[in-house]
Design a protein around this nucleic acid. Structure first.
Lengths: 124, 124
DNA sequence: TCTTTCGTGTCAGAACTTATGACATGAAAG
DNA sequence: CTTTCATGTCATAAGTTCTGACACGAAAGA
């Protein structure tokens, strides 16, 4: 299960994808970051790279806002979780090699029973 | 079930991520596409966007090559699968809104309880 | 052995995407 | 009436990806 968490923590999505997935504007997504509600990783070129967990968090923030909750509150709410996450990640130091294997495992599972794939909608 | 398939078909990854995940060069990835072994979607700006299924396929191709198989062979091998996929997909037309919900569900599951397992291939 | 074909590397120039910072604003809050 | 909040919108710089072209060692043919 440590695997699972790692998989979800892999920073693999660019801003455009996150925008499409959350229906939030780049401005909003970056703003929530200044509010310490998400902490995307950065690639070597300084571009943000989000994990599935990040997208999840953004959707929660979106919901929170919709229901009148303010950032300070949500920040407090996520505080503990945050620490845990970062602690785990820092002590892991995941290499691309390892990440690849985790992803493979992930896909294998998802592939379980299957009539495979192909590309569909382009937008996201 | 149909859900899972769709989720895995979401074109959400940029070239750089796929390169890191597969350890293949952009050149290789694009070449395999000219060989009709992968069919990434494109965003509005004409940038390739890969799905988890695409990454899966690329890893299979990589393995195939490593074990002396040639493209023509792999192409034939994947041919049938392809048709099925595209047929299904064309009749689906997924909206961003819907994709978002599917992704959420996906993440929920992943977050749930899942027994991972390494190793890949078979079915070849 | 000479000639293709393969699978990749690498370069160039154009086009697309994302980053940061600044100015602007309607809605709330004070 | 004046701030603060959450976003929109611009501008400029820099990172990323696209296509096409030239090159090349290795394998396959002739």
């Amino acid at each position: 299960m440590a695997e699972k968490q790692l998989r979800r923590s892999l920073a693999i999505l660019p801003m455009s994808t996150v925008m499409a997935l959350t229906d939030l504007s780049a401005r909003q997504i970056r703003y929530y970051e200044t509010q310490a509600l998400v902490h995307p990783a950065r690639n070597e070129g300084n571009r943000r790279r989000y994990s599935l967990n990040d997208v999840d968090r953004l959707l929660e923030v979106k919901d929170g806002l919709a229901s009148g909750m303010d950032f300070a509150t949500m920040r407090r709410l996520y505080a503990k979780t945050h620490q845990v996450e970062s602690t785990q990640l820092e002590s892991k130091r995941l290499s691309d090699e390892r990440a690849r294997h985790l992803l493979e495992a992930e896909m294998q599972q998802l592939a379980g029973m299957r009539p495979p794939q192909s590309g569909l909608q382009q937008r996201l």
